[in-house]
Design a protein around this nucleic acid. Structure first.
Length: 858
DNA sequence: CAAATGGGTATGATCTCGACA
DNA sequence: GTTGTCGAGATCATACCCATT
């Protein structure tokens, strides 16, 4: 929401300042689509590509456009008609305003309410007049940022481009691969658009102009100098120099190019810079686009510029605009878009939906997005140069199943799927993997593929007749080359060994009030590397997850790829990631099987600990063939418990290592915790949950002074979060009566948003996230819930610091007295935690939430 | 028969770690 | 004893081959 584009910059870029091609002209970017060109001809031949034709600014009438009115007035019908494209066709609307709201053919331009002037040549012109050089000026807003289109600055590009998902503007992305419009990715996703236009998938019909465009704009290239050759030997593997210098269009073997959806986003974005995903959000009217989305007390408004950016706005909904510039910037899903505009299978315009990076709950009191069947823990992703390796499967051989619970509507909904991180602390779209649409005889689920801000998203139907259940048999995983991604400007992730992903599912549920509830659920991690599935041991289950510090208890570890040589190593790391303890457990080789290990838990290094200690263990088959670390808790020996504040108890208990500088003692509201923990060596999860029966704290994590707590609670925690940069990043403004129906997003911090619910509580079948937006308590309007849920779980991270951990004292919000356990909230100032500790926290919270849910169900 | 799928593996790049200065 | 460099081996990433469906 905070990304803006100043077209002046774009024009400068396009004028060649940053373009390697001196004679590069903006118009060149479109010529490949000119009628009669090879590309255009192919498009005409291929109805699947036809929509791209509209991207030619000079020949818009030549291309088979869907009758605009069809789009605009098309009722929101099940999107899986014979030709679902009809629902998702890029909209070049009739110039005449219709229905009181108008969406413009325009780049994705996001404007805060404070913006008063907006000018765009095409905003109020018929698309006939759409200029390939639209101008966008925002007087007084010179600070509006336009992210450098990577393909325009190959100098830097090795070119890394700042394909920031939030800021990506297809408009500014002339580096498209028109000939690839039916291909897998390069033309679709800006993420790899700039990067993979050099993908060997070169169509024979590619025109010289196209090549020019690609050559001129694409920085990183595939090294493959010839079709059908491997990029490695004998020509040698790519080097960074090759990325910098290669202008070749390597051919390559394409096993099974992605069956393209309509790619309205990407297609448009790719073929007509400036459209892209904007089409989803502002794509109903040719001359107008909403520049502001304003909500007053009871009404939603959409503002449209008039008269070249002068502060004249048409008002939608025939409603009176009470304030052009609300005091608080916010972003709501307007009612008017809930249905009439169909984008892909999704009834909501993309731009009105929360960014993929944003955290969303998996459930509310009314709905729950539930992953009924998890995917297999391993799936071999395919490279672009390979064909598809099929859809992600379930352990049983079927496919993952996702169901929306609690939905009583009759309209089908759209389930979105994309690939998210699994190893990152923050759940976000994975930079190195993309979802890949699978089609074929074996695929029963129709799907539609689009690209949202550089992330491929599959949309599949959730229909009431199927009990709002979807079988995910159409989702494969595409691996992007590490070098390509890492060369992107601003990309900090490393591809190497970053091979775990999660399937992220989203659904947006229109509400009677015209707003929308968005839910998100993430699958278990999926290891996408090739070899791991056959070599790396995989721990799937352990019968106990805690034990007294003295050890000695038998633990049964079930999983895969265990061998007679498998060892189980327990280890402990400090907050900064330094390993301080390691102990090999004794494995009963006589009992152990390839899928099961019988392990004797070793004693902890210090039997005098007073806090439960979270450690990890892993199974290792050989050098470096080790499983992912698993959680384990050593519980202290019985000792007199010390009365203290409940908060301290929680703080100490949850993250003893995190606060190991603290001398606080473990305590327990009922003074029995320590004893219970210690005496129940091999504490069962149920028992462990019980320790939180008196509390259901909301936890706010903060790192680096940038906080996440917001709204009401932020005030409550303001004494803790003293950092002046502490900002609200996610606000739920809904009153208990309207709660999740309106999700407000602060436009200032979206990049900071972690997937808190996911990061803290990896979803499991029986452990759905219980994360609500600020200010929302299901208990308030759900009498059936006898236990409250955490109100806020947000997590934010800054760069890891080598400095030693700084214990942060958290305070219970003053208005949440500790004697009201259900209201108790805990704020934890978190500093420099490494993943292990975060995992620890996650685990604790997960158990806590599970316990809460269990109690709620009981 | 063609396409999709999936397993295997060749090969260069990169990383790890010990030896040595 | 510490630090930096080098090189061999291990590991990883990428992509081609090919059998199966």
């Amino acid at each position: 929401m905070s990304a803006f584009y100043e077209h002046k910059d774009l024009e400068e870029d396009l004028s060649g300042a940053n373009c390697p091609e001196d004679d590069f002209q903006f118009e060149d970017l479109f010529e490949y689509e000119a009628p009669g060109s090879d590309t255009a001809q192919r498009h005409q031949d291929d109805p699947n590509l036809s929509t791209h034709k509209v991207l030619s600014p000079d020949s818009d009438h030549s291309f088979p456009l869907e009758e605009p009115s069809h789009y605009h007035h098309k009722p929101y019908s099940p999107p899986y008609s014979a030709d679902p494209r009809g629902d998702v066709l890029p909209v070049f609307e009739h110039p005449e305003p219709r229905g009181g709201y108008h969406l413009a053919l325009s780049p994705r331009i996001e404007i805060t309410p404070s913006r008063e002037h907006f000018q765009h040549d095409s905003l109020h012109n018929h698309h006939q007049n759409l200029s390939p050089r639209p101008t966008l000026t925002v007087p007084g807003h010179e600070n509006l940022s336009y992210r450098e289109p990577q393909c325009l600055s190959p100098a830097s590009s090795n070119s890394s481009t700042s394909w920031h998902s939030e800021s990506y503007s297809p408009w500014a992305s002339p580096c498209v691969s028109p000939s690839n419009s039916a291909h897998n990715t390069g033309d679709l996703c800006p993420r790899f658009q700039n990067i993979h236009t050099g993908s060997p998938r070169t169509s024979p019909g590619t025109s010289p102009r196209t090549s020019l465009t690609e050559e001129g704009c694409v920085g990183p290239r595939s090294p493959s100098p010839r079709a059908g050759s491997r990029s490695t030997s004998p020509q040698g593997k790519r080097t960074y120099d090759m990325y910098r210098n290669s202008g070749l269009l390597p051919g390559h073997r394409s096993r099974s190019p992605s069956p393209h959806g309509r790619h309205d986003d990407q297609g448009i974005g790719a073929h007509f810079p400036g459209l892209g995903d904007s089409m989803n959000g502002y794509s109903a009217g040719p001359g107008l686009m909403p520049t502001k989305i304003v909500k007053t007390a009871n009404q939603l408004y959409t503002l449209y510029p008039e008269n070249n950016g002068e502060a004249n706005y048409l008002m939608s909904c025939d409603q009176e605009l009470k304030s052009k510039t609300p005091a608080e910037p916010f972003f709501v899903i307007p009612q008017i878009w809930s249905k009439p505009l169909v984008s892909g299978f999704c009834g909501l315009p993309v731009s009105s939906l929360p960014p993929l990076e944003w955290p969303l709950p998996s459930r509310t009191d009314q709905y729950e997005l539930h992953i009924e069947v998890q995917p297999r823990p391993h799936h071999r992703a395919h490279y672009e140069t390979e064909g598809s390796r099929g859809a992600v499967k379930a352990p049983t051989g079927g496919h993952p199943v996702v169901q929306l619970l609690g939905y009583r509507g009759k309209d089908p909904l759209c389930l979105q799927i994309f690939i998210g991180t699994a190893d990152e602390r923050i759940l976000k779209p994975h930079a190195f993997y993309q979802v890949h649409r699978i089609t074929g005889k074996t695929v029963t689920t129709s799907s539609y593929e689009k690209v949202l801000h550089g992330t491929k998203v599959l949309e599949i139907p959730l229909e009431p007749k199927n009990n709002m259940k979807a079988i995910i048999d159409c989702a494969g995983i595409l691996k992007l080359r590490n070098a390509d991604i890492e060369l992107r400007k601003g990309e900090t992730d490393v591809g190497r060994k970053n091979t775990r992903v999660r399937l992220i599912f989203r659904v947006h549920i229109p509400q009677p009030g015209g707003t929308t509830v968005s839910l998100q659920a993430a699958s278990h991690p999926i290891e996408c590397s090739q070899r791991s599935a056959h070599e790396l041991p995989l721990v799937e289950r352990q019968d106990i997850d805690s034990c007294c510090v003295l050890g000695g208890q038998q633990m049964i570890v079930s999983g895969q790829n265990f061998s007679s040589d498998s060892k189980v190593i327990f280890l402990e790391k400090t907050q900064d990631g330094q390993q301080i303890w390691e102990m090999e457990a004794t494995v009963d080789k006589d009992k152990s099987q390839p899928s099961m290990l019988f392990v004797e838990v070793p004693s902890y290094r210090d039997s005098n600990v007073v806090h439960p200690v979270k450690v990890n263990f892993y199974v290792i088959n050989g050098k470096r063939k080790r499983s992912q670390p698993q959680h384990f808790t050593y519980t202290p020996l019985p000792s007199p418990s010390i009365k203290s504040e409940p908060l301290d108890e929680y703080e100490s208990f949850v993250m003893p290592q995190m606060f190991y500088h603290s001398q606080r003692s473990v305590l327990n509201p009922d003074n029995s915790l320590v004893s219970n923990l210690c005496l129940s060596s091999g504490l069962s999860p149920q028992t462990e949950e019980g320790r939180f029966q008196q509390q259901s704290p909301a936890i706010v994590f903060s790192r680096g002074g940038k906080s996440l707590s917001s709204g009401l609670y932020q005030q409550q925690t303001s004494t803790v979060m003293s950092d002046p940069h502490h900002r609200s990043v996610l606000v739920h403004t809904g009153s208990p009566a309207q709660h999740p129906s309106i999700i407000q997003f602060s436009p200032t911090n979206q990049q900071l948003l972690p997937r808190a619910d996911e990061a803290l509580a990896p979803p499991t079948h029986d452990n759905q996230h219980v994360v609500y937006c600020e200010g929302y308590s299901p208990q308030a309007h759900s009498p059936s819930h006898h236990q409250s849920y955490p109100s806020v779980i947000q997590q934010q991270f800054t760069q890891k610091s080598p400095s030693p951990p700084t214990p942060q004292k958290a305070r219970t919000p003053p208005d949440n007295p500790p004697d009201h356990p259900t209201d108790r909230r805990v704020t934890v100032k978190e500093e420099n935690l490494d993943q292990a500790y975060l995992d620890d926290v996650n685990e604790i919270i997960r158990k806590d939430l599970t316990g809460v849910q269990a109690r709620g169900n009981s």
